[in-house]
Design a protein around this nucleic acid. Structure first.
Length: 593
RNA sequence: GGCCUCGUAGUUCAACUGGAUAGAAUAUCAGAUUUCGGCUCUGAUGGUUGGAGGUUCGAAUCCUCUCGAGGUCACCA
């Protein structure tokens, strides 16, 4: 039981004994540094139940607690805040209860209801870029956090493998490709296909210009450009199942998938399952037909099908075109339903998608509710803001997108430059160094992106992210590595359990234990809020607390054996908590650096 | 124009979801240290939380208005 839980029971009991009234919750916060005490009870909310002077209430409660609860040594009252001084032994006992738990903070008993987390969800016509990186990191981390909070999790994605954009790359390759393949060009598949998407666009633009020179309006030119007509023709063939077109589509998509797989592996994320829109849109159409019968949807004169959401403050939304083909919404309805068919234990889903689609998901969730699915109330759109660069906005049209693979490679290079400047890592082999640069570069990138609130836009500055000082990934990795060095150097017995009569706590040791105690709460809150940022900021606070402890309390030169053991045990506990927290963020920690 | 999100030190981010005097880092400045104007340590400066009202014991947080930034309002995905 944590200190808060124990105290909570005592405070409730005290309250009912003193005032013959029941308290359902007790609000705690850690005592601010300028006051004496370890933990603070906020008594303001209690005034609603018992009308009296807050200072008097604090005095009463404080006196009662000191008298009846052994762990409460002293108290002071400031306005509605009751500051309690807790006996060192209590923190020591608590530390002993967690020090051997290598998964401290992680909930072990798993809910029977699972959560499906979708992320990445790329188009198959161009390589992944910095925007995808934020998506993938967020989704993966939220999945890991949910797992740690006791949920069964399926990681999945939806692959947008169907539609006119794929046909554009296919057509360009057919025309100008000269049978280029990833093998004979040594290009990653997604890059190769992406190049042809760009090629298509070039030709398309030129054709538009030519047509306009002949006197067509821009609008007409855009619609009549021969290469576009040909692409549209290809889409029709694809939908009709034309053998050649489908074969080409399969081949090029496979190239892309292989390329993506490499990128995912480099980033360090994985998936349990994959969904393809080409497989799910038909199921969506079935349920549109179903909903049309039950009155969830209605048909217009031209045959298009709509959902009327005006009663919910939204608009009418199209769910099926007049020619009977599926739209985006249709596919998403189908995909959601398909997922529950495949995994009946799923009780909710998280969609990691950029905030430009906030409205889409609002509508999707509402429609699924209207269709009567009980799991529809547990759908969450993990919406995130754009990633800006110091050089400006990312725009694919202007070629200012940052390619994910390039970025990862650059981060490692930057890590190398900075490490060499700092003169770290002497005496390691080339391979060892290379691996450490990779870990640092990637850690810098991930930490920088994950530490900020998902819904806010990010300004990503590669240089600043690799800084070894401040609230950065490398700084935390560095602290971890430093602790490993201490542990290697010092001989100690981790299994010894020290009680309060054998050793006394230094204030800094107590602070450190208090910080460790927060971890389970952080996991639960991060899970509830789908926020890796909470975990990231916790790691930084822990590191700061450790540094302060390490600076003030000598580990290596401790006189008494028992004190030394405790201090090293603390260091070890910090390092394993850091590692666990970084696992949740998907960031590796180096043993040396 | 309707709807949605965001606005916090010069900068990048926090603030336990309504709690105490809004915290870190970075930058800047001043000391200490030093074979370096580079590394390290200590300290300081820096804020009317975009602005104006309101709700209450208490507001960065909730409500209204307003200004600014972005997004979205497709038979695209």
């Amino acid at each position: 039981m944590t200190i808060q839980e124990t105290l909570s029971l005592h405070v409730k009991k005290a309250f009912s004994n003193l005032y013959q009234a029941e308290l359902d919750t007790v609000e705690f916060q850690s005592t601010r540094k300028e006051f004496e005490g370890d933990i603070t009870v906020v008594t303001f909310p209690m005034l609603r139940i018992v009308k009296m002077n807050p200072a008097k209430l604090g005095e009463d409660l404080g006196e009662y607690l000191v008298e009846h609860v052994a762990e409460v040594k002293a108290f002071n009252v400031v306005k509605g805040f009751l500051n309690l001084v807790i006996a060192d032994g209590f923190y020591l006992d608590f530390f002993n209860s967690i020090k051997d738990d290598t998964k401290y903070g992680f909930v072990q008993d798993i809910d029977d209801k699972a959560v499906m987390v979708e992320y990445s969800s790329p188009n198959t016509n161009k390589p992944l870029h910095l925007g995808h990186v934020r998506n993938v990191l967020l989704g993966h981390s939220v999945a890991e956090i949910l797992k740690a909070s006791g949920k069964k999790v399926y990681k999945t994605q939806i692959i947008n493998d169907r539609g006119i954009h794929i046909c554009k790359s296919m057509l360009a390759w057919k025309r100008y490709g000269n049978n280029e393949t990833p093998e004979n060009t040594e290009l990653k598949g997604d890059k190769l296909v992406g190049n042809y998407y760009v090629k298509f666009d070039k030709v398309y633009k030129k054709e538009i210009a030519d047509l306009m020179a002949k006197g067509l309006s821009e609008e007409d030119a855009k619609k009549q450009a021969p290469i576009l007509l040909e692409a549209q023709d290809m889409l029709i063939k694809w939908e009709a199942g034309d053998k050649d077109v489908v074969a080409l589509w399969k081949m090029m998509n496979d190239w892309v998938y292989k390329g993506f797989e490499t990128t995912y592996k480099n980033i360090g994320v994985d998936f349990d399952s994959y969904y393809y829109e080409s497989n799910t849109y038909l199921l969506g159409k079935e349920f549109i037909a179903e909903g049309l019968k039950t009155g969830v949807f209605f048909a217009k004169d031209d045959g298009s099908v709509w959902c009327d959401l005006t009663a919910d403050g939204l608009d009418e939304k199209i769910v099926l075109r007049s020619d009977g083909t599926a739209v985006y919404m249709t596919q998403d309805i189908g995909t959601a339903i398909q997922r529950l068919k495949d995994c009946p234990d799923v009780g909710g889903m998280v969609y990691t998608v950029g905030n430009e689609q906030d409205y889409h998901f609002k509508v999707l969730f509402l429609i699924l509710k209207k269709l009567g699915f009980d799991w529809a109330k547990n759908l969450f759109h993990l919406s995130y803001g754009m990633v800006d660069l110091p050089s400006g906005k990312m725009k694919s049209r202007e070629g200012t997108v940052v390619d994910a693979d390039d970025l990862i490679a650059e981060m490692a290079t930057t890590a190398q430059e900075i490490s060499q400047d700092l003169g770290k890592l002497e005496g390691y082999t080339k391979e060892e160094k290379k691996d450490i640069y990779r870990i640092i570069g990637l850690g810098a990138l991930k930490y920088y992106i994950l530490k900020v609130d998902p819904k806010k836009r990010i300004l990503f500055d590669p240089k600043e992210s690799v800084d070894f000082q401040g609230n950065t990934g490398p700084f935390i990795q560095y602290t971890y590595a430093r602790i490993q060095a201490i542990l290697r150097k010092v001989d100690f017995d981790a299994s010894v359990t020290l009680s309060a009569d054998k050793v006394s706590l230094h204030p800094k040791e107590k602070e450190l234990i208090k910080q460790l105690e927060l971890f389970p709460d952080v996991i639960q809150q991060a899970a509830a809020n789908h926020s890796p940022a909470m975990v990231a900021n916790f790691t930084y606070d822990l590191v700061k607390e450790f540094n302060s402890f390490y600076q003030n309390v000598s580990i290596l030169g401790a006189d008494e054996q028992n004190e030394k053991i405790l201090r090293v045990q603390l260091a070890q506990s910090v390092s394993s908590t850091l590692k666990n927290a970084f696992d949740l963020l998907g960031i590796e920690v180096p043993e040396r650096m």
